[in-house]
Design a binder for these strands. Structure first.
Lengths: 105, 105
DNA sequence: GACTACATGTAGAGGTTCTACATATCAAGT
DNA sequence: ACTTGATATGTAGAACCTCTACATGTAGTC
């Protein structure tokens, strides 16, 4: 599946990934790729702006790594982010139910 | 669920509704509302532009009713529309699989 | 006569995701 | 030393979807 099939579920996917532990952007991209069995390959131009948006919204908090090595911005789920994840999961379940009801009617 | 949870599935929902038989815009809105058990209540400002878009794309064909009574534009699924519906269903299944894989990992 | 349901539509705003580009570090091979 | 590929982050501009709010008019009912 190319990236343009996630339609509004990107935030939930990112929050769910961070719920398993903090991670930096590139790691989130590779994690989603692996977790999805190579079906999700999100472009950086999609993920990085989403991370900034989620941070601005208070759902995740980012910190730059210190010391040598590649600079990374590591993100962690906040309390508000956990709530946002719950809402995202709930919305996803609703969508699944509605789609099921209409498609299998 | 309010309308802003359908995220890119609107076309598939409309095409699936028309796959059960031709219908005009307002009827599609009420059909989706009933089929979903009142969970979907799409605003006209969302559905009518979507119908025009789908017609422009060749997925559905519309004709104005003749004679007295309220003017209605009745839409029917085209051959291309049936293909588009197939693709929409396939995309939806992919999304469900990817979401399942990531969320239940 | 007023109100509700039916019926279609436009305008403008807001948001998400895309493609393409830009930059830089590190490891491995040659 | 040089090149290549993987790692890592980010911006710019375009395209697209859905929303809210508004606008218009018909048909039926009380």
């Amino acid at each position: 599946m190319d990236a343009d099939g996630i339609h509004g579920q990107l935030d939930t996917l990112i929050l769910a990934t961070l719920n398993r532990g903090e991670a930096h952007g590139y790691a989130i991209i590779t994690a989603l790729k692996e977790l999805s069995g190579d079906r999700l390959d999100l472009p950086s131009g999609t993920v990085y702006p989403a991370l900034r948006r989620l941070e601005r919204a208070g759902s995740i908090s980012g910190t730059w790594t210190e010391g040598p090595g590649r600079r990374r911005r590591v993100y962690a789920l906040t309390g508000d982010g956990a709530k946002a994840l719950e809402k995202g999961l709930s919305d996803w379940r609703s969508l699944r139910e509605v789609m099921g009801a209409v498609l299998e009617a």
